[in-house]
């Protein structure tokens, strides 16, 4: 989707603010939410996780911290997978908001732990006779001018642009069909190189290039 998350090349965000000796987390809940999202992501794919963030309200997206975005997509995906309901989350949240000292229950069932770990294992391409890559290193290609309303990993700045294949990276799950629970098709993935001038025209700085990982379906021969 043409979402606010697709930031490459945008203007107006100002200088890059850095924090000296930055701690790993800025609040205890961040560590907990991070671990929760990491351990729950067996219920959904990484592309579904990204899609949940991309579908945040754009104003909320820009206002949110990194871990607030993780929390938002965790909740969205748990609801969309039918694992939790909005109502039970809201009811439970009201209890903790009213009483911050209220303990979180423990569950240390080792079988449930095994199940949670097994759920997180990734899948492998199953084709017995995989297709050959369509493009070879050095090939001149062009990215397609795609504007899907769903998830994609082809950023706006890189659509409809000439580039060259610099590496064939093997087959990876196609993100554009892997975000909504459909079984992702495995596709050849490549790294392509764009000259900065192809992307940014006269605004390009001298002697620069951008490299991007793309799936076969994003490309046409140039």
């Amino acid at each position: 989707m043409n979402g606010v998350h697709d930031l490459g090349g945008m203007h107006g965000f100002g200088p890059i603010e850095r924090e000296e000796n930055e701690p790993k987390y800025h609040a205890a809940w961040e560590a907990r939410a991070h671990a929760l999202a990491s351990s729950a992501n067996g219920f959904y794919t990484i592309d579904e996780s990204r899609s949940g963030i991309e579908r945040m309200d754009p104003v909320a997206y820009l206002a949110a911290s990194y871990y607030e975005r993780w929390l938002a997509t965790l909740e969205t995906n748990l609801v969309e997978k039918g694992i939790l309901t909005r109502e039970e989350i809201a009811a439970r949240h009201a209890l903790y908001a009213a009483d911050p000292a209220r303990p979180v229950p423990r569950n240390d069932d080792p079988i449930a732990t095994e199940r949670a770990i097994a759920r997180r294992r990734g899948s492998q391409p199953a084709d017995i006779d995989p297709p050959l890559p369509r493009f070879a290193v050095g090939a001149a290609v062009m990215t397609r001018n795609l504007h899907p309303v769903g998830h994609t990993r082809l950023p706006r700045y890189a659509r409809g642009k000439r580039c060259a294949i610099v590496a064939v990276r093997g087959r990876m799950i196609f993100p554009d069909t892997h975000f909504d629970g459909r079984e992702g098709a495995w596709q050849w993935a490549y790294t392509v190189r764009f000259a900065a001038r192809e992307l940014w025209g006269d605004a390009a700085e001298p002697n620069g290039s951008v490299h991007l990982d793309v799936w076969e379906e994003y490309l046409d021969p140039a």
Binding site: W29, A35, A40, L71, I83, I89, H93, A97
Partner: peptide
Amino acid sequence: EPYPASRTKALESLLVEKGLLTTDHIDAIV
């Protein structure tokens, strides 16, 4: 507490109650 702190507790408590995640597992990742 800030909203995300209590929201995190709400999600964790529901998931461990249902046996979908365990406290051990979350603690280990932390």
